[in-house]
Amino acid sequence: MKLLTTATLGAGLLALAACQKTTEAPFDPGVCYAVEIGAEGEAPRFNKVADEQPQIEFCAARLEEMRLRFLRLGGGRREVMGAYQGQFIFIDRAGVWISKTLEGSRFILLARTGDGRLAIPSAIQRAIDGTPVSVSASPEPAAPATAP
């Protein structure tokens, strides 16, 4: 009897959780938005940042550019949210994350390299302790010096 009551209560909680309203991003092809969270109970605002963005990575680059410009002007926000074709974009000090909903789980899209640039996570070399290794080397060998 106790097991049946617990199972019924659990099923009821799952049904209530499934009915909870989630915020979804607009699906305008190629349009990149900055997202501003409203006050308690208000819907978020979507401000257009750029048109004709071919991929979500380009939108993330426009949002990162906006974030850096605001910081140069004296702003203090280090995290930015955006939206692109039905997905939310979250930019923070670790990199760029994406999610289908504003409240949902996030997945890494781009990670920061040792010098702060954004790159595909699998392209970043890491040291044994997990810290990023940033090596900037010339792709061409230096020309040998000739003696006079």
Score class of each variant (00 low, 15 high):
139 P>N: 05
44 P>D: 06
53 Q>D: 03
72 R>E: 15
92 D>A: 07
64 E>G: 01
15 A>G: 10
145 A>D: 09
29 P>Y: 01
49 V>Q: 08
9 L>F: 13
140 E>Y: 14
48 K>Q: 13
29 P>A: 11
37 I>D: 04
16 L>M: 12
100 K>D: 13
88 F>K: 03
123 A>R: 10
22 T>V: 13
128 I>M: 11
38 G>E: 04
14 L>G: 12
117 R>C: 01
127 A>M: 12
128 I>K: 15
90 F>N: 07
116 G>M: 12
22 T>L: 09
86 G>E: 08
68 L>M: 12
78 R>G: 12
41 G>R: 06
42 E>F: 12
89 I>N: 04
83 A>I: 05
29 P>L: 06
45 R>D: 12
67 R>A: 11
94 A>W: 01
133 V>N: 05
13 L>M: 15
66 M>Y: 04
53 Q>T: 09
19 C>R: 13
72 R>A: 10
46 F>G: 03
34 A>S: 12
35 V>L: 01
34 A>K: 09
124 I>L: 08
103 E>R: 08
128 I>A: 15
49 V>D: 02
32 C>T: 05
53 Q>P: 00
71 L>I: 14
126 R>A: 09
11 A>I: 06
66 M>F: 05
37 I>W: 06
139 P>R: 02
31 V>R: 14
82 G>D: 04
82 G>V: 08
75 G>T: 03
6 T>I: 14
103 E>T: 09
10 G>Y: 03
5 T>R: 14
63 L>N: 09
69 R>Y: 01
109 L>K: 08
75 G>F: 02
26 P>S: 02
97 W>A: 03
86 G>F: 07
42 E>R: 08
54 P>F: 05
68 L>I: 13
64 E>H: 08
12 G>K: 06
33 Y>F: 15
147 A>E: 15
58 F>L: 05
111 A>N: 06
141 P>L: 14
41 G>I: 07
81 M>D: 00
72 R>I: 05
84 Y>G: 00
37 I>N: 06
38 G>R: 06
43 A>K: 09
18 A>D: 01
141 P>D: 11
57 E>P: 00
63 L>V: 07
119 A>Y: 04
131 T>A: 12
117 R>K: 14
25 A>W: 03
99 S>P: 06
83 A>K: 06
73 L>T: 09
91 I>P: 00
110 L>C: 09
110 L>F: 08
81 M>C: 01
68 L>C: 06
16 L>V: 12
98 I>C: 02
19 C>F: 10
147 A>S: 14
48 K>M: 08
66 M>A: 14
119 A>G: 11
116 G>E: 06
73 L>N: 11
138 S>C: 13
7 A>I: 13
35 V>R: 02
102 L>F: 13
52 E>T: 05
11 A>M: 12
28 D>N: 13
124 I>M: 06
70 F>N: 11
125 Q>R: 15
36 E>W: 00
116 G>Q: 10
50 A>R: 10
145 A>C: 10
113 T>D: 03
44 P>V: 05
